[in-house]
Design a protein around this nucleic acid. Sequence first.
DNA 1: TTTTTGATTGACTGCTCACTCAACAAATTT
DNA 2: AAATTTGTTGAGTGAGCAGTCAATCAAAAA
Lengths: 187, 187
Amino acid sequence: MDKQKKILESALQLFVEYGFHGTPTSKIASNAGVAAGTLFHYFKTKDELVINLYNRIKGELNTYVYSQIDNNDTVEAKFRTLFNHTLYWALKNNQEFYFIQQFHFSPHLASIPPDELVNQAKPHIELFEQAVREGILKPLPADLLLTLVGSHVYGLHQYLAKAGFDKKRESEVIDQAFEMIWDMITI
Amino acid sequence: MDKQKKILESALQLFVEYGFHGTPTSKIASNAGVAAGTLFHYFKTKDELVINLYNRIKGELNTYVYSQIDNNDTVEAKFRTLFNHTLYWALKNNQEFYFIQQFHFSPHLASIPPDELVNQAKPHIELFEQAVREGILKPLPADLLLTLVGSHVYGLHQYLAKAGFDKKRESEVIDQAFEMIWDMITI
DNA sequence: TTTTTGATTGACTGCTCACTCAACAAATTT
DNA sequence: AAATTTGTTGAGTGAGCAGTCAATCAAAAA
């Protein structure tokens, strides 16, 4: 019913399948069951639609993942929760997660203000810094640790998305992968 | 002098900066110091140019990296050589390495026959399988190991490319990162 | 009820772009 | 030297696309 939402859903699906420039706005609109002009009522330009979609998805992932964290948890429990729920979300929202990466390897990334990207990463960075101070993690730069753990998550998601295991096998692999990366970054 | 090469160089540079669809063939040609029509003498379509560029770059990386391997080396030495030289190549050929990832997150990937992708990965997969058989690596599927190590390399490259350290600091980080991933995948 | 405001439509426009082609130039073959 | 093949040019073509807009519709405000 909500046409803006329909447009966003339609755009996501088509962008992931055909790429940003491989999907005309007319197709996004018709696929959403909406006239071509309606798209431009909600989004001034196609670029604005792309960026809006990215910000929404990034926001959904972040709020979901951080809603799972209990501040009374130990640092290790926090990392485990973050890791597990990021993967859980990514596997449940394959298109969204793929879109994030697609966006990161596109020129659109340049239109996100750098300080906003820093802000997005801030909670993660602070967790890493705290864990380094507490002597839990190896004394490495927090942004290096974040990049390495992030890559690990991306790679694991890619593997699991392609493999298509059942839930049981999936969480076995995730648990094993967490132990591996945890061993890697802890002292 | 070689116009085909000029076109490929120009295309790489512009694709990395503006994306595939953000760079018109006319710009590729003029940037290469060549008339618009000349591009189509060497490449039937723009898509063919993109795919040709991808295959060349992938080929260059593979031949370079495997030329560094000595078959008398131990498995660990082979892994270390592979790891170090992939990163060395990636840092020396930033645009090329970025292009590979950009290509992987584009619809162009679909036009590479799946068996060719399997072939590209074959030498790596065989190394991993051998190392698992010899009891050096953890008994995990070779394609999972490859994906995880691959992600590690991508992440590390991304970090180093952004950080812009000098050669000394760079190889310190690379060595440290190798120890970390090696500890992670070995028994 | 009447007015105003906002939502929706789709034909239309102007522009960009991939690709063509006829003409010319250079190199290679006979 | 003539003939043939191969390389190069850039104006031109047609298709596709982002974004516009005048008209219609819906619903809330006056």
